[in-house]
Nucleic acid binder design. Structure first.
Lengths: 160, 160
DNA sequence: TCCAAGTGGTTAATCTTTCAACTTTCTTAG
DNA sequence: CTAAGAAAGTTGAAAGATTAACCACTTGGA
């Protein structure tokens, strides 16, 4: 059982380094590229993700908290974000009958139209820069590897 | 040759979606977690990455542009970032003899000490939340899959 | 019933990132 | 040798993100 140790630290092996850096680089470069591909439509990655979530929800609406959780943002950040999108006419806030503290973020007509127009381009972008560069076996393996990692990280999310 | 098409768009299959979302989730959750693990040392991921780059460079120094390229940041962002780190005493700017437009970012004593203190914790963090959750085969496969993607994306980086 | 603690969400202040404009120095075509 | 353009870097303002404090409503006991 090797320790690769000097003062007790297990540094990364060559191979581990390479995998780690590849993941890091891809994740940053990819976000950057997707952002650029959305730019012509006047949307950011963040905008788009929210549109997706609302589009896929019952009645095109979601409680602010749920949306925050789904998109991994803080309440505060989401609140600002929704304000901007509201100003852009993509969503509107609506209050919640059953819990008067609560609010829904609701897709507007314009938001829905935008979504329908942009989605195909976005998918194409994801394909071009990621999915289509991987074989089917790669995709399977990738998912199998990363799903547990995501699981682990999500469990840590609720904090200590 | 399936097209999975409706109006010509090749939507993602179940399997593709899953892989894609896994990658997305891991990359965001992971950055978030690493950031949190650096917090006790008063560093951000950004700070840390710059310290790493400088630490690994000849003479603990790097030209601003090279550092910007290496860390995938804009010149402007790096400039601000270095200013902050300069105020924190981690780096200093030094001008370049051979090209009088140029500047070096140089690690200070304090920057180097900080690096030596923090690195072991950071590596532990990377292991705990990523590397050690993957088998050796996973790591190999991951690298093999992602390296070409990174390559592709880097080639697009120089802009249109 | 009442109130203490918890939830849902916003707001203001602060920090970071982006965008566009600018200065200085270098390079190169003529 | 010189002028035009490119490269290196900075700057200030505007946009976005984070933090902490806050208000309004709910809930779960005593």
């Amino acid at each position: 059982m090797s320790m690769d140790t000097e003062n007790g630290t297990r540094w990364l092996s060559e191979e581990e380094q390479r995998a780690w850096r590849a993941h890091l680089d891809v994740s940053r470069l990819l976000m950057h590229q997707l952002e650029r591909d959305l730019q012509p439509f006047g949307l950011t990655n963040n905008d788009y993700e929210i549109l997706v979530n609302l589009s896929e929800s019952e009645d095109h609406r979601m409680r602010m908290s749920d949306l925050a959780t789904a998109t991994l943002q803080s309440k505060s950040r989401l609140s600002h974000q929704i304000t901007r999108m509201e100003n852009a006419g993509l969503v509107r806030r609506e209050n919640c009958e059953s819990d008067r503290r609560g609010l829904y973020a609701v897709l507007t007509e314009h938001g829905w139209d935008t979504m329908r127009q942009v989605a195909p381009h976005h998918v194409a972008s994801v394909r071009e820069h990621f999915i289509d560069l991987l074989g089917e076996a790669d995709l399977k393996a990738l998912y199998a590897s990363l799903a547990p990692v995501a699981q682990h990280l999500r469990s840590l999310r609720g904090r200590a």
